[in-house]
Write a protein that binds this DNA or RNA. Sequence first.
DNA 1: TTGTGGTGT
Length: 616
Amino acid sequence: DVIELTRYTSDTQESDRNKPTPKRRLKPEEETEEANYQEWCTNLLGSYSGNTVQVLQNFDYNRINMNLLQHIVCFICNNMEDGAILVFVPGWEEIRKLHQMIQSTQMSRSGSIKVIPLHSLMPTANQKEVFDRPAPGVRKIVIATNIAETSITIDDVVYVVDAGKIKIKGFEPEMNLSCLQPLWVSKANAKQRRGRAGRVQSGHCFHLYTKFRYELLLDSHPPEMLRTRLEELCLHIKLLKLGSIVPFVSKAIQHPSMEAITHAINTLKELNALDMNENLLPLGQHLARMPVEPQTGKMILFGAMFCCLDPILTVAASLSFKDAFSIPLGKESLADEARCRLAQETKSDHVMLINTFKGWEQSLKRGNNRTYCWDHFLSENTLRMLRDMKKQFTELLFNTGFLKTKSPKDPHANLNSDNLGLIRAVLCAGLYPNVAQITHVPTMKSSLNRKGSIIMVTKDDQKVYAHPKSVNVRQSFFESRWLVFYHKLKTSKVYIHDSTMVSPYALLFFGGDINIVMEDQTELVTVDDWIKFKAASSTAQLVKDLRQQLDRLLASKIIRPGATSWDISDAEGALMTAIADLITLADDDYASGFSMGGSIGKKPNQLEMSQFGEQY
DNA sequence: TTGTGGTGT
């Protein structure tokens, strides 16, 4: 009933500003909903002013009405008793808009309000500013995502404004695609949001949707198990010896689709965690015991075996938890610049993360860590948590025998930690099969104008875009057109959030099955039948042989973990050195600007490969 | 041209 009161008052203020928006074409089920809605509005005519009903009739409920939001906030400020206001909106963009609208009002200029944006990626989320009582006569207005629904509780909130939308993550196994879409809140969300008001005194809640809409809301959103990847779940079922995966998962009250389960099982087979009969392989045993996704676990094991542990642990911790960047509203592009500085010219978000963490450690020694974090938009709190996670990972590796000490800084485990080429290859080992091929780069000019971004294809997707926060988004030259990535998410487009350029050698040694084929009278070596490189059959065969030896060696190390030998007088050391050298040289070759057609002047030196297609 | 929110002994 409070809803109805507010709607009445605010809509009268709203009506003259409400520009008519062109109605888009509706789907059949939307048309009947719309017809029902119009009828519902007409029935209100007895109880409400014609103006209110008219506004409601013209409302576009697919968009959040920012004007209405602002007007309600102003209405509370001007007409209602003291008390903080908490506004729920779906995401960053809405926080930004509303923040800007409110800051440009008269009451903001008079200093009678204090507006605080609240989002997990903004520094305000871990500052005490949000909890502070404002000075007398100043009204606190918090604009928040659903972070304020459960994780952050603000005691002095008296008024809650609920815009009615929430972002929910989903997963489509058929497309191998996660998506983040704004949806209507559920009745459960609505209740929870309402409950955030009036913790210390009686409160009020304003919902920006009609009773009509409320009746259509779901009681709650589908449980997480139905919307998420299931690799970890499947691995644990096997580790705990709970039998075959499909029958076990089917016992859940609301069980995930068959597609989602088989997709997870296939991914685990591809990683060599399960065999063809779903039996847990030795690698799977290790991965199941790690508190990270299987791919990240594999990256950690490879980091240990190839002795570039510390940097790889930085990446693993950042990917499985979150990166340490914390960006104030309005400083987005400054933060992008900081990230690009940290990445230098590596064309890698992951190497950027490594450099970021290294830089912080150095700043700690010099005692200027505060400045370092400030300059680069970093949360020192998060960096400390990442450091603790890295420690935890090394303890696990120590317990399973992959390490001789419990320190991420173990000298032997970091023999190759300055070898960027090898680090890229280990990233490739962990992130595979998340590979994207660049099909388009912005021109120098459009890149400087901050227009245009790289466009890629993956095995599953026609077209994917680099996320604007990626250091690779506006690069106009890549020595290799292959990128590996961790996070792919569909929002307005399909975005790749983080990527690292890798050489063909990294893909050949650490990617999927390699084959030698003829296509259009050209000899090719392929990885999983879709990543293709031109290569003479003799050299391709050499790579294939080396790859087989490497796979055998790695399999035996997984079964009997131990520190890797780099002594070229024994078999293991000789092979590891040869492969590491090959990958390193290939990477140096890039750095000095040679094309892939160039030969490599060292042993094993018969390799001559060129990329499929020309350089940009 | 952009980032709902949590977990793991």
